[in-house]
Design a protein around this nucleic acid. Structure first.
Lengths: 210, 210
DNA sequence: GTCTATACATCGATAGAC
DNA sequence: GTCTATCGATGTATAGAC
């Protein structure tokens, strides 16, 4: 039976990395929201004291912004890469859909963190808000391109982008509701694969492809 | 120039009604979330003191549950009434879609409050969570009925219900994002009408109608 | 870089006067 | 039914030792 020695100040052999702190912060903010997660809780998850966390991030707002921006950036490059390369319009569209679904499926904190930021109004974030707006604008531009090429029927591309975004994010942003409805763990690999194929099918019908 | 007299105890001529307290509570919880809204803030919005609010609701949790349940109940009867009556499958479907969209458009706090509850995992709520699950199950049953009648092509009705719910709620649950994308106030009557028609169009294509 | 200790505000909730 | 006053816990953030 081991006894917990009282913690003492000093430079530890293996200090926690900034990346690890951001990881646990993403988990906390995703689960509890900005207001619900506390610096003490996040520090505890990382195995350090609250004041040590403040050494790495001057304010809670700073920590939140950086944690959120990593998700937005990750998703941005992931989807960006999928859009690169050759192929038909539909092939590029499908690659971006699957990339998004696989990203959300592989990173359980991501969709919920994004959705919370959207619901909060994105007031706390300007940089990330602009990045999100850029992603949506890319989506709008893509749909307009498809309409101009005659592949997609003409409709309001901006309302369409909002609907498409909703279809892609909701399932993973509210996993308890999704799990209760489909009767399975949302992040199980086979469920992610199934949902990915279904989202492709849903969005094809929604966009009027074929 | 009037001077603010200090508040004094006693029975006021016109005490605030429970309905008014629930209304301002819905606004606060919708804007700030459960963790972000405080009993003091809600009391202040209603023009009373925090301790007076605790006279009406024993705990913050009680207030939240009742505020949320009014939205779930309102939406339930609104959509339920739309589903009643005669008409073809598509006519009943369209009535329920339009009822939902008009409800969200007319009650700016509703969709956001619901989405917050979904993102929070519905852990705080059992009764309302069951009510929401019931609405989704009704949706599933309706789609399966449409498939059995040969009106809808066969697909996974449960995943379909999740997608349909996302399309209906997202636009009004994240109004700042929506407004930025479409460049207009989401709750302006003409925008609500436009979005309603577009959602009907989107869901028709998604469901494979016609 | 981490710790102890603390300052100071706000939170949910209670007690008791009117 | 509303108020003043207060309690105890928790929140963000800071100061200074090691």
């Amino acid at each position: 039976m081991t006894t917990d020695l009282p913690r003492r100040p000093g430079r530890p052999a293996r200090p926690v990395t900034r990346e690890h702190l951001l990881k646990v912060a993403r988990e906390a903010f995703s689960q509890l929201g900005y207001a619900g997660a506390s610096m003490g809780d996040i520090a505890g998850r990382a195995g350090i004291r609250k004041s040590s966390l403040f050494h790495h991030f001057a304010t809670k707002d700073d920590l939140y912004r950086e944690a959120l921006s990593t998700v937005v950036a990750d998703l941005g490059v992931f989807v960006g890469q999928a859009l690169q390369g050759d192929g038909t319009f539909v092939e590029r569209l499908d690659r971006s859909i699957l990339a998004t679904q696989h990203y959300f499926g592989a990173h359980p904190v991501a969709a919920r963190l994004l959705m919370r930021e959207f619901v909060d109004g994105g007031a706390a974030i300007t940089a990330a808000g602009d990045a999100v707006a850029a992603v949506l604008e890319t989506s709008v531009a893509m749909f307009e391109q498809g309409m101009n090429e005659g592949i997609l029927p003409r409709t309001d591309a901006r309302h369409l982008a909002m609907t498409v975004a909703a279809v892609q994010i909701q399932f993973y942003a509210t996993p308890e509701v999704s799990a209760r409805l489909v009767g399975a763990d949302v992040f199980a690999p086979d469920v992610v694969e199934q949902r990915s194929q279904i989202v492709v099918e849903h969005l094809h019908r929604l966009l009027g492809i074929k």
